[in-house]
Amino acid sequence: MASRAARPAVVRAPALIGSLMRNTRIRRLAVVVALALLIAPVTWLRSDPEVTTQDLVQLQPLGVAQPEGWPASLTLEGAWNVANDNPAFGGFSALRIEPVSNGLVAYSDRGTYAHIPRPPFAGSSPAQTAALPRDPLLRDPQDIESVTADSASGAIWLGYEHHNAIRRYSANGTSQFVQPDAMAEWSTNSGPEAMVRLSDGRFIVLAERGDEGLLFADDPLTGGEPMRFSIDPPGDFLPTDMAQLPDGRVLILLRDVTWALPPFASLLMVADPSAIGEEEIWPLTELARIDEAGLRENYEGITVEPDGTGAATVWLIADDNLSQLQRTLLLKLHYVYAAGKQTAREAQSPAGR
């Protein structure tokens, strides 16, 4: 998990600033270390999973209310704990809607995928957890962190952490991958954490470490040089995924590590791709925070489902890190995006604050 030092406010006491910065770094490092210690032993118990092609999944509704502070344009329609006995189920970092079945497909940091029944749903349904075919040139781990698709051609693109690679699956089942030179200097655990294919064919890719972004004019596998830009989210939030809205803007999902149980806070922000400039900060506008006790988890996947009326269903899925101490939560949000639209010129600052 990448982290960044907190950006202190400018005051007249340099010594105090230095002390606060050191304390902030120490507190954040302590949280990250504690999280690693919590996850590591339990993850070990679930290592080397047996992947089955037909296992059952249950959606357990959570009794949670609309979070305080959310705008009127955003409504929590449901929250579920996704339960499954297959040890390979979980660790989901990317989510998409399968156009043929109209179901949800989640991709994991172990190179597997699973079909998740669309809630509301009662009883059990086959999850069909399976591993994607390995490319012999992509060594393990097969850590999938992002997914995007072209509904017209049926192609999907997967972003692989550790390799800084983008892999394209064509509708006929063949695949190719590229490791763009522009991502070569990204650390092995920082990207491509978030990726979206825009409706005009361009691709946006964000590194998890939060300050680097790339805008490809076309499919990254065509070899074109991308435009470089940066983002400046509030506090220590880092991007985990993104998806495009029907009006052209992008919803960005971000996460922070906090002093809480589970030790995560999530943030939804909105951004306009037309405002991306070479070597400039992409303006972001805060939409809502997800840090209520009953909803708090490690959300890493997002997908958007328009309804054609100026609103959309937004699905979020949490990565349980294959740990028995965390949950695979699925959230269903209703977002009236037309009511909350804001142009780049209206944004108050680079972070929309």
Rank of each mutant, 00 (worst) to 15 (best):
A5M: 06
A6M: 10
P8Q: 11
P8N: 06
V11T: 15
R12E: 06
R12L: 08
P14E: 00
P14W: 02
L16F: 04
L16D: 04
G18F: 00
S19Y: 08
L20P: 02
I26T: 13
I26K: 14
V31D: 08
A34P: 00
L35H: 14
L37C: 02
L38H: 09
A40E: 06
W44E: 03
P49I: 00
P49C: 05
V51C: 09
L56W: 01
Q58C: 08
L59W: 13
P61K: 14
L62W: 03
G63R: 14
E68K: 10
W70Q: 11
W70G: 06
S73N: 00
T75H: 14
A79D: 03
F89V: 04
G91I: 10
S93N: 00
A94S: 05
R96L: 11
V100W: 05
G103F: 01
V105Y: 05
V105K: 06
G111M: 12
T112Y: 02
H115G: 02
I116T: 11
P126V: 10
Q128A: 08
A130H: 05
D135E: 10
L137T: 04
I144F: 13
S146D: 11
V147A: 00
S153L: 03
G154K: 02
W157G: 03
Y160N: 03
Y160C: 00
H163L: 09
I166W: 03
Y169E: 05
A171S: 11
N172E: 13
G173F: 09
T174H: 00
T174K: 01
V178S: 11
Q179I: 05
E185H: 10
E193C: 04
A194V: 01
R197V: 04
R197Y: 07
L198S: 05
V205M: 04
V205Q: 02
L206N: 11
L206P: 07
E212A: 15
G213D: 08
G213W: 12
G213L: 12
L215P: 12
L215F: 03
F216G: 03
F216M: 04
A217D: 10
A217T: 04
E225T: 13
P226T: 08
R228N: 15
F229Y: 10
S230C: 00
P234Y: 03
G235A: 08
D236A: 06
D236H: 04
L238V: 14
T240A: 14
M242H: 10
M242I: 06
L251E: 12
L253I: 10
V257P: 01
W259E: 12
P262I: 10
L268G: 01
V270K: 08
S274T: 15
E279W: 14
E280Q: 13
W282N: 08
W282L: 14
T285C: 11
I290W: 00
E297I: 09
E297F: 13
E297Q: 15
N298Q: 04
N298F: 06
G301F: 10
V304M: 09
A311S: 15
T313D: 14
V314K: 00
L316E: 09
I317Q: 02
D320N: 15
L329S: 07
L331M: 02
L331V: 06
K332D: 02
K332M: 06
H334S: 14
V336I: 01
A339F: 07
G340Y: 14
G340R: 15
G340I: 08
T343S: 15
A344F: 06
E346P: 02
A347K: 05
Q348T: 13
S349W: 01
P350E: 08
